[in-house]
Simulated assay, not measured.
Amino acid sequence: MAAKTKRLGRGLGALISDESDDEFFGDEGAKQFREVEIHSIRPNPFQPREEYNTKLMEELKNSIAEKGVIQPITVREKDRGYELIAGERRLRAVRELGYDRIPAFIMEVETDDEMLELALIENIQREDLNPIDVARGYHRLIEELHLTQEQVAQKVGKERSTVTNFLRLLKLPPEIQESLRKAEISMGHARALLGVENAGRQLEIWEKTVQKKLSVRDVEAHVRKINQPPKRKVTISREKSPYIEAAEEKLREVLATKVKIYPQKKGGKIEIEYYSKEELERILEILQPPGNDY
């Protein structure tokens, strides 16, 4: 039976040098580093990663099949077995390859808060983690461990502004967050969309971005256009001269109805109001010179 067991063929000594091991762990390193049986490792209950890239997983499996596990996983001892702290992808890969053991660092982690913090930070610092999962990791550190944004930034080695920008992504509608997770849009697109406060408008621009494959600059231009205040119609107030006002008043008295005069550069126009056919005939009679029929 032992001959049929699949192991990480190159051995721990070939994968991790004694010098690097001692440098990392000191004199007690041998007690904290060993090959662990895969069936004894339980999943991390605080695992923040929600999605795995199939292509990257296949590449990892091919790499392990050829060279072994270069970077050990990290576990803690619990309930006569082990609980995974970090290394979910590596553990999945060796399981799918049929191995029965994997190199692991054994850490002393006493509380679930420590476990959560280690798991979140390890995942957040991975290059292939999508922006939304990074943002959710920061959010969990703040909400569940009661950390400030400044403390989160210090723990993950980032600027506070970087943490803030990631957290702002969680204000986007769920459809846009999912699109960012799937890499349909980039972080730049998402940040540009945050420039629009209305969620409906955000979705409109996002749909157009995905359909037409708009660049980040295109999205920024759309946002600027939406945020641009509407142009006010400029009405030029022209004060009427006393002569025009007197003429209006005289016509109103003569015609017994509303009259307005609109002077122009050359000439102008007179507006006479009437409210029935009979009133129109009355006005015409007033305007008609004596002896002329119309």
Results as ranks from 00 to 15, higher is better:
Ala2Pro: 00
Lys4Gly: 07
Thr5Lys: 13
Leu8Ile: 15
Ala14Met: 07
Ser20Trp: 12
Asp21Met: 15
Asp21Glu: 08
Asp27Met: 11
Arg34Val: 06
Glu35Asp: 12
Pro43Tyr: 04
Phe46Cys: 07
Glu50Ala: 03
Glu51Lys: 10
Glu51Leu: 11
Asn53Arg: 13
Glu66Ala: 09
Ile73Met: 09
Ile73Asn: 02
Val75Trp: 02
Arg80Lys: 14
Glu83Trp: 03
Glu83Asp: 05
Ala86Arg: 02
Arg92Thr: 12
Val94Trp: 04
Phe105Gln: 06
Asp113Gly: 09
Glu114Thr: 05
Leu118Pro: 00
Glu122Gln: 11
Asn123Cys: 02
Val134Ser: 04
Arg136Asn: 09
His139Glu: 12
Arg140Gly: 01
Glu144Ala: 09
Lys155Ser: 08
Phe166Val: 00
Phe166Leu: 13
Lys171Asn: 10
Pro173Asp: 02
Pro173Ser: 01
Gln177Cys: 06
Arg181His: 02
Ala183Tyr: 15
Glu184Met: 07
Glu184Tyr: 07
Met187Thr: 02
Arg191Pro: 00
Ala199Tyr: 01
Leu214Gln: 10
Ala221Thr: 12
Val223Phe: 11
Lys225Asn: 03
Lys231Leu: 14
Ile236Trp: 06
Ile236Gln: 09
Glu248Asp: 12
Glu249Phe: 12
Lys266Val: 06
Gly268Ile: 07
Gly268Tyr: 10
Glu278Val: 10
Glu285Gln: 12
Gly291Met: 06
